[in-house]
């Protein structure tokens, strides 16, 4: 049984998760002819923005990560 709750699963190839500690994590498929996924843990500002805007914010965040997969060194590869 997963200890993560899936809050959002989008056809844009990302999903938003809440882990056991309550932290929000976004998992995004990145790449072109070879696709893989990365995870980014939302910081306090991003968590607040999601609380305010919901899916619209998650969508923007996913697109920002797809456009820059290292995401300032915050992205972690999903094995």
């Amino acid at each position: 049984m997963s200890d993560e709750e899936v809050l959002l699963q989008s056809p844009l190839l990302y999903r938003l998760l809440r882990d056991r500690s309550g932290a929000l994590i976004i998992e995004v498929v990145v790449g072109g002819i070879a696709m893989s996924a990365v995870r980014v843990r939302l910081d306090a500002n991003e968590t607040a923005a999601y609380a305010r805007e919901g899916r619209a914010f998650a969508e923007r965040l996913a697109q920002a990560i797809q456009a820059d997969p290292p995401f300032g060194g915050r992205a972690v590869d999903v094995p």
Partner: peptide, 23 residues
Amino acid sequence: WLMKDSAYQTFVVQTNAKNFGRC
């Protein structure tokens, strides 16, 4: 095209996707 199996399982199989890619 190639996809890591973990991403394929999460975003294609588990979602029962009809099309590949970002929709």
